[in-house]
């Protein structure tokens, strides 16, 4: 009885110390009833990189993301954050160390822009003056100066402005890790490009580690330092941007083919 169990815990400890990845998915599988959403998903996220999870709807990318901040737990396998399994973390403390941006911002409608950005620092009981300074600084960074936007409510903002506030809120308590779940998915292409450029600027300035979920191959190539292609809950391909462009796996090729110009009959369209 003691033999095998000590062996298991021994291998887990050595594994945790062997790699100091910020996030480490270890053979993660998730089943919802009969449906398996993730299958033997293994991946390490290193400090400072932007890892993009690229996949179609239903490929399991959002599910994978939600295991990192303990919104979901693996059926089998484990997710390590800073070397510790999410099941072993205090979930509240873990989530306060991870910024989270979702596609429809999830801003609190009854809080002003400034109050929304202040949520996590306030939960962490920062001094009021520090919170105020931090909010002003971050809103400035995302192009929403506090003098102009701080007192507004989310329903008084455009969709793109709400997403900017969502990014500021995620950054508020200076978390080492950020999770993005298709944050720019519903934006018009011009605004999307603005926010993507801003993402890169902020990344250069703040040097955060990010996991970014998208189904947009252009976005993946623009923002990702490394790209993982998901297919039916498994990783089909993972590698740096340059390798992804040369990838030969079918799903990666399918995504890359989206970059080719559409074929249409020029003669006919001119006629």
């Amino acid at each position: 009885m003691t033999g095998p169990s000590s062996k298991v815990s021994g291998s887990q400890t050595s594994g945790a110390y062997a790699t100091m990845s910020l996030v480490s998915f270890r053979d993660v599988s998730i089943d919802f009833g009969q449906r398996s959403i993730l299958r033997h998903f293994s991946l390490d996220v290193e400090v400072g990189e932007t890892l993009v999870l690229l996949g179609r709807s239903g490929s399991g990318k959002t599910t994978a993301l939600k295991t990192v901040n303990a919104m979901l737990f693996p059926t089998t396998g484990m997710v390590l954050v800073e070397g510790r399994a999410t099941t072993a973390w205090d979930h509240i403390q873990l989530r306060r160390r991870i910024g989270y941006v979702i596609h429809d911002s999830g801003l609190f409608p009854h809080y002003t822009v400034a109050q929304n950005v202040a949520v996590v620092p306030r939960l962490k009981q920062w001094p009021a003056a520090d919170i105020e300074a931090r909010v002003a600084n971050l809103l400035q960074k995302v192009g929403m100066p506090v003098e102009e936007f701080g007192a507004r409510y989310p329903d008084e903002l455009s969709y793109g402005q709400r997403q900017r506030v969502g990014v500021a809120r995620a950054l508020a308590a200076d978390p080492p890790l950020l999770l993005f779940d298709e944050p720019f998915g519903s934006l018009d292409p011009v605004t999307r490009l603005e926010l993507q450029r801003q993402f890169i600027e902020l990344r250069q300035e703040l040097r955060k580690t990010s996991i970014f979920v998208t189904h947009d191959v252009r976005e993946a190539l623009f923002l990702g330092t490394r790209i993982a292609v998901l297919l039916k809950g498994s990783i089909e391909f993972v590698g740096p941007r340059r390798e992804f462009l040369q990838a030969s796996t079918p799903e990666a090729r399918a995504f890359l083919s989206c970059l080719e110009p559409l074929e249409y009959d020029t003669e006919q369209s001119l006629a």
């Binding site: 306060r96 979702i102 911002s105 999830g106 939960l123 809120r169």
Partner: peptide, 23 residues
């Protein structure tokens, strides 16, 4: 209450009580 709002309250690290009273 909008699921996105409730989920983001949880993801930001609110306890059940904080989420109930504040959101």
């Amino acid at each position: 209450v909008d699921v996105a709002v409730r989920d983001s309250a949880t993801a930001l690290g609110m306890t059940t009580g904080e989420r109930m009273w504040q959101v």
